[in-house]
Design a protein around this nucleic acid. Structure first.
Length: 819
DNA sequence: AATATGTTCATTTTT
DNA sequence: TGAACATATT
């Protein structure tokens, strides 16, 4: 089998043939990373290393499947363990979970189950939520778990209301999970890390068992995962981590980019291999990606070396509305498909948040283009699936009170809040599960007549299911459907809508179950089936059908497409609003954009729209990231003007938007009779670009369009044009927050903030204030800008005044104007 | 318990 | 903008 090293470049070969000792593979996008990992596994096997001593961990099922698939293709069936972190941990806990109080039939709670459990824990802990938000608490708990901090480890005195609350809630929550014999997602990792940490013999045992450990996407590991990997590679540090710090996009989930940046410190004598040659994208696309990512400060410099021939320019496109964006892109797709140059599956539309998919779904549907939506409502999250699965879970783990509550009165059988309350009390006071408590309540005649018969029906059904569980999953499901008349119940509930999706979803679940049944002998498959469901994610559902793919930038990691559209690249969307005050988060947003760009093989369009959201009322500024792209070598297209009906263009909005675009006159001159305007940025002839760079310096006299709907804005009405004299002036925020209404009186934009953020050329913001700009300040007079730092409202200019004095001003506040 | 109507409220990313 | 939640009504 000489083929393992064929067709690999030098660095790839170096990584593949590295056998013993720690190895760090820094793999840029499209550099053949998966190829290296799979070939390395094959190489290890070829060296006579036992498949049982190799452990390969990934983040997604899809990556794991891909890996298995490709390894099998090289070496045939193998017993190498390849799977996700969560999958490995689940298996680990089935075996060793008793060390933290779990039984082997524990349930894995999904996010929703975990939420109800946490809510209950809040109640048990007796914490009032009046001054705290639930999501905050949930986030805090998650963060602790990501860092593998158990309730017992909480030490230092809590500070602040949140910490005080979490101190009570977290232990209550963990206790509750244990009495349910359940874990949440984070627990899978945390418990595993804890067990490895506190049971040295076991750790050493597994360390030697997994002599060779491979970790994919190492830049996305959190502390708990780090501890697991570390624990398994202490005595046998034959560990190969692969990743790309520039693609670390899960910091919000606790991923610590430091894990990869510090790998060389953690493991002495590390061999480092850089895979920098890119086999995926055109030089144009790579140049854009490289240019962007170079703006990150906290990174290891790394090159992207193109190997493909030059292709078309990367496009930046501005639209007037989000709808036009969706329509135009869909039209482009139609065009390419009709041309025969591309198929639907060659396209991907990527966006920051799931909500952005909607317009595209509509646009594509109208054009009858097949598409698939990744994310959004997940299959296993649908009510019908969750209900049915909850029954199965309860069979598998009778202590799972969350599932019990979910199904005990579904369909309604007279077990309402009141009876359930009694059962809950009984369960709490006696320390028994809800299921057992219900039985007890029934026997002791504690229930009302209606509830009594309901309880009988339910328990009868349950017992029957338990009986059938020795048979097959399908048998259970079929009995369940028949006994409860479930489909009828649910479609009756959803009334008017002829919803056949319920039917087909149930069919799909049955098909899954059947597959599991056929693989496993009598009833053995239930637990695995449930685990598979719990750990399934939506990227797994990626079909290889011929469809356009719609998904978030996060979900796109690891994938590639011929043509990629990245949409809504706008201020507060792509650098998301919640990231903008934090430099580290800004860098993560930039990496996210980088990931998106590098998904494209042949063609890439980046777009923004100036209005988006509810009724087009929400305004969007182009993303500052656009300024970091090599625009001189890209095509910059402005489609804001012409497509709108009735000449509705930039001018139709509040006057203040007009300063963003070239004037309508100029647009119509350029456009002529064209359907839409296409303006190219011309780097040969700077004069041609002047129109975009300069006209906005002279702010047009804007008609104060907005009728004063003054109700609460009492003060500004009088002197909208008079910026007050020093930094205490309160300028209303640029982005309309409430009700999508713009603040009144913006006609006389003068403050630095407006100038600095609202000015664009062909949809790209231009910095008004940069070093060298002559400015004037009502109090200090004339001066010149020395430096400008920071983003958005925090943008600060250092100014040297003509009298020699130097001062710094927050541009969002200071009444500075261009001289 | 189920429906009707009103009200608020968000709007990141996910194993 | 609509979805999710809350309250009122039968």
């Amino acid at each position: 089998m000489g083929g393992i090293l064929d067709g690999l470049n030098e660095s790839q070969r170096a990584a593949v043939t590295h056998v013993d000792g720690p190895l760090l593979t820094l793999a840029g996008p499209g550099s053949g990373k998966t190829r290296v990992v799979t070939h390395r596994i094959a190489y290890l096997l070829e060296q006579g290393i036992s498949p049982y001593s190799i452990l390969a961990l990934t983040f997604t099922n899809k990556a794991a499947q891909e890996m298995k698939h490709r390894v099998v293709r090289i070496v045939g069936e193998t017993n190498v363990w390849m799977g996700t972190f969560h999958g490995y941990c689940a298996r680990f806990l089935r075996r060793y979970g008793n060390l933290v109080g779990l039984k082997d039939n524990f349930t894995i709670f999904d996010a929703d189950d975990a939420k109800s459990a946490l809510e209950e824990a809040v109640g048990i802990a007796g914490v009032s939520l009046t001054h705290l938000k639930f999501p905050e608490i949930s986030k805090s708990v998650g963060q602790l778990k990501n860092r593998a901090i158990t309730p017992e480890m909480l030490q230092s005195a809590p500070s602040g209301a949140l910490e005080v609350a979490v101190r009570k809630i977290y232990p209550a929550y963990q206790k509750l999970l244990l009495t349910n014999n359940a874990v949440d997602f984070d627990d899978l990792l945390m418990h595993t890390a804890t067990i490895l940490r506190t049971n040295e013999d076991l750790r050493a045992d597994l360390d030697s068992k997994h002599e060779y450990v491979l970790v994919d996407e190492y830049q996305d590991t959190n502390l708990a995962q780090y501890l697991i990997v570390r624990g398994l590679s202490l005595n046998y540090p034959n560990i190969n981590v692969t990743g790309d710090p520039d693609q670390s996009i899960y910091g919000w989930r606790g991923a610590d980019i430091g894990n990869i940046l510090n790998f060389e410190r953690d493991y002495p004598n590390v061999a480092t291999v850089r895979l920098e040659e890119n086999y995926r994208s055109t030089p144009e696309i790579l140049s854009a990606a490289d240019c962007l990512i170079s703006c990150n400060v906290r990174r290891k410099a790394k090159r992207l070396i193109p190997t493909l021939p030059s292709g078309q320019k990367v496009l930046i496109c501005s639209y007037a509305t989000a709808k036009e964006e969706a329509d135009d892109i869909s039209d482009q797709i139609v065009q390419h498909v009709l041309d025969g140059t591309r198929e639907p599956k060659d396209f991907a539309v990527l966006y920051r948040t799931n909500a952005h998919s909607r317009l595209f779904e509509q646009a594509l549907m109208r054009r009858k283009i097949p598409y698939q939506l990744i994310g959004g409502f997940r299959f296993y999250q649908r009510q019908e699936i969750r209900d049915l699965v909850a029954y199965l879970r309860l069979v598998n783990n009778p202590e799972d009170d969350v599932s019990f509550r979910r199904v005990v009165n579904v369909p309604p059988r007279g077990l309402g809040d009141k009876s359930l309350q009694q059962v809950t009390e009984l369960s709490r006071s006696r320390g028994i599960s809800m299921l057992v408590a219900l039985r007890a309540a029934l026997e002791r005649g504690m229930l009302s007549k209606k509830a009594l018969s309901g309880a009988r029906t339910f328990l009868e059904l349950y017992d029957r299911l338990v009986h059938l569980s020795g048979d097959s999953i399908v048998a259970m499901l079929e009995h369940l459907l028949k006994a409860t008349n479930y489909i009828e119940y649910l479609s009756g509930k959803k009334s008017d809508q002829a919803d056949d999706s319920v039917q087909s979803n149930v069919q799909e679940l049955l098909a899954d179950a059947e597959e599991k049944d056929s693989l496993m002998s009598d009833g053995e498959g239930l637990q695995q089936f449930l685990e598979q469901i719990s750990l399934a994610s939506d990227t797994d559902n990626l079909k290889s059908d011929n469809r356009v793919t719609l998904m978030t930038l996060h979900a796109a990691k690891g994938l590639e497409f011929e043509n990629v559209y990245i949409i809504a690249v706008e201020q507060d969307v792509l650098p998301h609003a919640r990231s903008k005050h934090d430099a580290a988060q800004m860098e993560e947003e930039r990496r996210l954009f980088f990931v998106g760009i590098t998904r494209a093989k042949q063609a890439l369009q980046i777009s923004n729209a100036s209005s988006r959201g509810f009724g087009g009322s929400k305004m969007g500024c182009p993303s500052p990231f656009l300024l970091e792209l090599p625009r001189a070598e890209m095509s910059v297209v402005d489609k804001t003007g012409a497509r709108a009906p009735g000449g509705r263009g930039p001018w139709s909005r509040d006057g203040f938007w007009a300063s963003e675009w070239i004037s309508e006159d100029e647009v119509s001159q350029e456009v002529g009779g064209e359907d839409f305007e296409v303006v190219r940025w011309d780097d040969q002839d700077p004069d041609a670009n002047r129109a975009f760079v300069e006209p906005s310096y002279e702010l047009p006299d804007l008609p104060p369009k907005r009728p004063k709907k003054s109700r609460d804005d009492k003060k500004d009405q009088g002197h909208p044009n008079d910026p007050a004299e020093d930094q205490q002036v309160e300028i209303q925020e640029m982005s309309p927050k409430k009700g999508g209404k713009l603040p009144a009186g913006l006609a006389g934009i003068k403050s630095g903030a407006e100038l600095n953020t609202s000015t664009t050329l062909a949809g790209i913001p231009v910095d008004y204030f940069k070093a060298g700009t002559r400015i004037t300040h009502p109090r200090y007079g004339l001066g010149v800008v020395v430096t400008v730092d920071g983003f958005g409202p925090k943008r600060v200019a250092k100014i040297e005044f003509d009298d020699g004095e130097t001062k710094s001003f927050q541009l969002s506040k200071a009444p500075i104007d261009v001289a």
